[in-house]
Amino acid sequence: MIAAITISYTVLILYFIFLAFGRLGTVDHVTGYTFIFLPDSFFRLPGLSDLLHPTLMDLVDLGNIAAFIPFGLLIPLLYRTDFIRFMILFILSILVIETIQALTLLGSFDINDVIQNSLGAAVGFGAYKSGCRYRRIWSNIAAVGIAIAILMLGIWGSFGVVDKAFTQELSEFVAINELQDSTGQPSEGAKLDPFEIGGQKVVPQYNVYSAEGRNIETYTYMLGKGNKELYLYMNYGIPDQEDFRGSITVTVDGQVFLSMSAEDQPHEPDMFGLYLERANKLTITIEGNEKLWDVGFREMEYSWRW
């Protein structure tokens, strides 16, 4: 029974890793392999606002750990092994899976996933060793559950401390109109007049970009000397009372990260966010009646980088 459960759960996890979330449909749009060897964040120490309003990434990080806890419980029930041997074999297995995921273009090799998945297995193994000490099965289940909760809290706290010590978001939101354009001149963007999209009133705070009455307009900005690691944000849509036509293309250092036509957009304001491991030159091309507003970024820097 334990072997059947282990095999079934492994197949389920492999399905989510390789096939779920529409991965097959995105293969044709992937232009190259993605390997991320440096962790860009840790399992953050939550504040009160994080606990009340967790972000999508908080839930993804938690899921990446929780989903692999069962392996730490099931494998020791099948085979007698010590913690070191178990973790070595598990980490090697995850490294192989992540590599296959990247080479098949069904995802990326992400060291963050390796760390979080391995932590989940370690929590399960630790809970098994701590909790399975009683003769009554319900006592073992309760003890294992308590051990998992304690270990998860310990990981959350310790990794949060590491995150605070080694990672910091140095910049506040920087609107791109505060930068210089490709000609070396500051760009103020269009007037911040409000407009409506899908019946919703939009009041820009920083900038507005459009084709300005022409069929196509291109905006190019240098994000700074050297390569920057940052999160890019922008809002876009087509105002009411205008023909629903146009497109947006966002290119960073020659690579297209967003190419969206009016046919693919909802009739309401939409937001685009993008993590860029390296970014220097930003190019935005707008066609038709599209509008972009509040375009900017937050820069990330790490204390181990000079």
Score class of each variant (00 low, 15 high):
residue 181 D to H: 09
residue 174 V to Q: 11
residue 221 Y to V: 04
residue 180 Q to N: 09
residue 150 I to Q: 00
residue 215 N to L: 11
residue 242 E to D: 05
residue 187 S to R: 09
residue 231 Y to P: 01
residue 201 K to G: 06
residue 160 G to S: 01
residue 150 I to C: 11
residue 153 L to H: 03
residue 220 T to R: 08
residue 169 E to H: 02
residue 211 A to C: 12
residue 185 Q to H: 14
residue 172 E to N: 15
residue 151 L to R: 03
residue 165 A to V: 15
residue 233 Y to D: 15
residue 199 G to C: 02
residue 178 E to C: 01
residue 256 V to G: 01
residue 185 Q to E: 13
residue 184 G to A: 07
residue 203 V to A: 04
residue 226 G to K: 11
residue 224 G to R: 11
residue 193 D to W: 07
residue 210 S to R: 01
residue 158 S to Y: 04
residue 191 K to N: 08
residue 180 Q to Y: 10
residue 238 I to T: 07
residue 257 F to I: 15
residue 243 D to F: 03
residue 257 F to W: 14
residue 196 E to S: 10
residue 197 I to P: 02
residue 178 E to I: 01
residue 241 Q to P: 00
residue 172 E to M: 08
residue 228 K to N: 10
residue 186 P to H: 11
residue 207 N to D: 11
residue 250 V to P: 10
residue 242 E to P: 03
residue 169 E to C: 02
residue 240 D to R: 05
residue 189 G to E: 00
residue 166 F to L: 12
residue 219 Y to L: 07
residue 250 V to L: 13
residue 193 D to P: 00
residue 225 K to W: 11
residue 156 W to F: 04
residue 248 I to T: 09
residue 224 G to C: 13
residue 219 Y to E: 01
residue 162 V to R: 00
residue 182 S to F: 08
residue 194 P to V: 05
residue 257 F to A: 00
residue 187 S to Q: 12
residue 227 N to F: 05
residue 184 G to Q: 02
residue 248 I to L: 15
residue 232 L to I: 09
residue 154 G to P: 06
residue 192 L to Q: 06
residue 230 L to V: 04
residue 204 P to C: 03
residue 182 S to K: 14
residue 151 L to D: 01
